[in-house]
Amino acid sequence: MKIKFIIVLFLFTTIQALPQEETFEPSGKPFVTIYANFHRGITGSATDEAAFELVRGYLGYEYFFSPEWYAKINVDVGSPDDLSPVSKIRRYAYFKNAYLRYTQQKLEIEFGLIGLKQFKLQESVWERRYLMKTLADEYRLGSSADLGVNFHYAFSEKIDADFTIMNGEGYSSLQMDDVFKYSLGSTFRFPRNFTSRIVYDIMHSEISETTLLLFSSYDFRSKWNIAGEFVIRQNEGWMANHDIYAFSVFGKYNLNERYQLFARFDKIKSNILEGETLPWHLANDGTALVAGIQFRPIKKITMALNYHDWYPWAANMEGGGFIFFDLEVKI
């Protein structure tokens, strides 16, 4: 009898000592992000412009149903880019994100109004979405979010791939036709301290509009970083031989935990059509320069004093330089 009691006690003790599976508690949280600035024109056509501006606000909620299932909704409150300056006081709300994500080991699937992978990577390296978008988004060579489905697979910690089917017109446009954009991309995290990505998009309607995006970033001991991005858009707007080329180079240097220096240079140009003497996209071709210092007094509050300049390629257009004080607040 004693032997049986000892065996039962041993088994009970052993079972209690085994690792117990943690019970998952579904949970969610709201989030708010605000972008604001004060800017003053100091050169060229910008000398008469100065204003305080509430650029954008994001209001959202994210929820974890289980370790595999996650949902997010994010409302973008701002002024559409096509409004006149007089109408900028108006505010319009768009769904920036509204999607469901399923994760299983190395596979991740997102469905709905999703954020696109290439913009997430570039924005995480650039770190200053609150003062300027990344290259393709800034010059309308792509949208940071779209309606569709994305399949993402991580082969290892150093390489992954993703395939996206989407409307192709961004999160602020509603497409009712049967023309979709297909995107194939891959991210590489080697050699050491390098992160690179390649993406190819195609959207066909009589002819194909295609976009090739190349990106690479080098990080040195978390002290400084330099990155470059190159975009080729062919047959813009399904117009044959109407091509756009753009590249961006940017970098940062951490002075300490709170202060950071940064600079960025963009260039966008278009080709000259047969029989013409000037680029077809000349009114929007040019170069941009941004440089400044960023300060983070506490976590979730970031501000930057910086200089913006735009140099148009068209001889009959005058550029303008601005001093900006930008602010990002996350709640």
Rank of each mutant, 00 (worst) to 15 (best):
91 R>H: 12
36 A>Q: 15
68 E>P: 06
89 I>V: 08
69 W>H: 07
37 N>H: 10
56 R>Y: 01
92 Y>W: 04
67 P>G: 09
34 I>C: 06
25 E>G: 05
56 R>M: 02
40 R>V: 15
90 R>C: 05
87 S>W: 06
27 S>C: 07
71 A>C: 13
41 G>T: 02
91 R>V: 07
79 S>Y: 02
24 F>Q: 08
65 F>E: 06
37 N>R: 14
39 H>V: 01
43 T>A: 11
88 K>L: 09
86 V>S: 13
50 A>E: 14
33 T>I: 09
56 R>P: 01
35 Y>M: 04
32 V>R: 14
53 E>P: 03
90 R>F: 06
63 Y>A: 03
83 L>K: 10
57 G>V: 13
62 E>M: 00
65 F>R: 01
45 S>N: 15
33 T>A: 06
77 V>K: 00
93 A>C: 06
47 T>E: 10
48 D>V: 05
50 A>F: 15
36 A>Y: 05
44 G>W: 03
46 A>N: 12
49 E>L: 10
87 S>I: 06
73 I>N: 14
26 P>I: 02
27 S>W: 11
28 G>D: 08
47 T>K: 15
81 D>P: 07
25 E>M: 08
57 G>H: 10
71 A>S: 07
29 K>M: 08
85 P>W: 07
46 A>L: 04
93 A>F: 07
62 E>L: 00
39 H>K: 05
78 G>P: 08
68 E>A: 09
69 W>Y: 06
28 G>A: 01
48 D>G: 14
40 R>W: 07
76 D>G: 11
91 R>W: 15
26 P>L: 03
51 A>S: 11
53 E>C: 10
60 G>T: 00
85 P>A: 12
78 G>W: 12
76 D>H: 05
30 P>G: 09
36 A>K: 10
62 E>A: 00
58 Y>A: 00
39 H>Q: 04
49 E>M: 05
26 P>F: 01
48 D>K: 14
55 V>T: 08
93 A>T: 09
34 I>K: 07
39 H>E: 06
25 E>N: 07
47 T>Y: 15
31 F>P: 00
24 F>S: 08
83 L>N: 03
72 K>H: 01
64 F>P: 13
24 F>G: 05
25 E>D: 11
42 I>D: 10
90 R>D: 04
44 G>Q: 04
51 A>V: 09
65 F>S: 07
39 H>T: 03
90 R>G: 10
85 P>I: 08
86 V>Q: 13
42 I>F: 14
82 D>E: 11
67 P>Y: 11
56 R>S: 02
81 D>S: 14
83 L>C: 04
88 K>M: 08
47 T>P: 06
50 A>C: 11
89 I>N: 12
67 P>S: 03
68 E>N: 15
73 I>C: 01
50 A>Y: 15
65 F>P: 13
88 K>H: 09
32 V>Y: 15
27 S>Y: 06
66 S>H: 10
28 G>R: 00
39 H>Y: 13
73 I>G: 15
41 G>N: 04
42 I>V: 08
31 F>M: 02
62 E>P: 00
69 W>T: 03
84 S>F: 05
58 Y>M: 02
78 G>N: 11
92 Y>Q: 14
30 P>E: 06
79 S>I: 07
25 E>H: 12
42 I>L: 14
46 A>S: 14
56 R>Q: 11
29 K>P: 07
77 V>W: 11
39 H>W: 08
86 V>L: 15
43 T>Q: 13
73 I>L: 14
81 D>C: 09
87 S>M: 08
60 G>S: 03
